[in-house]
Simulated assay, not measured.
Amino acid sequence: MKKLIFCIGVLFILSGCNENCDDTACFTPPPPFNFEFIDADTGENLFTSGTLEEDDISVTNQADNSERFISEDDYNVLNIGDIGWETESVNYLIEVGERISFSLLVDAERRNEDCCSFTRINSTEIQDSEFEHAENSDLIRILVEVPNEELL
C-alpha cells in the first residue's frame, strides 16, 4: 500500500513539472527587415525624391528563384517581413532598378521557450552594398551613389 501511495505521489509531482501553456498567450513575431535607400552624398530618401519607384523593386529567394512579397510603405521604406516565421536560412537578392543589387543572408531560428514562441536571428549579412544601421532603430540604410543624371 505504501508503494502505491508513493507511486501516485511521484506521478502527481512529475505531472506538475510539465508546463501547461494552455492559459499562456505569448507570441512574438519575427522582426521585419526594413531598408531605406538613400543618396550617399545628400542623405535624401530616393523614393521620397522620386528617383526610385515601388515598381522598381524586386526581391527574389535565391534558393528557388521565387519572388517574395514585399511592401514599400508611406515612410518610403522597403519592408521584408516573411523571414523567421520558421527556422531557416535565407538568401534574398534585392534589386531596385538596374543599378542597385545586393544580397541579404539571414540565419533565423524559431524558438519556443517558457510557453512563448519567438525568433532568434543568429546572423545577418548584406553583400555587395554599402549600408549603415540607423541609430535607435531596426532600419538599414542602403547607401547609393547617385550620378548627376537620373539613377535609372
Rank of each mutant, 00 (worst) to 15 (best):
L93V: 08
N112P: 02
V90N: 05
I80E: 00
T87H: 00
G84C: 05
R120P: 01
E98K: 15
F102E: 11
V77C: 06
G97I: 09
G84T: 04
G81Q: 13
V106C: 03
E88Q: 12
N76Y: 02
L105P: 04
E98F: 09
N91C: 00
E98P: 10
L104R: 11
G84V: 01
T119V: 10
W85L: 07
E113C: 10
E95Y: 03
D114H: 06
C115Y: 02
I80A: 03
E113N: 14
G81P: 03
F118R: 06
N91Y: 07
Y92A: 09
I94N: 07
R111V: 08
D82R: 00
V90E: 03
F118W: 01
S117Y: 08
W85Y: 12
E88R: 06
E86S: 15
L78W: 03
E113A: 14
I83M: 10
D114F: 02
E109T: 03
E86M: 09
G81N: 14
R120I: 12
E113V: 01
S117A: 10
V96E: 08
T87A: 02
E86Y: 09
I80L: 07
R111L: 05
G81R: 11
S117E: 14
C116E: 15
N76V: 05
R110G: 01
I80M: 01
R120V: 13
V106N: 08
T87N: 01
I94R: 00
V96C: 09
E95T: 04
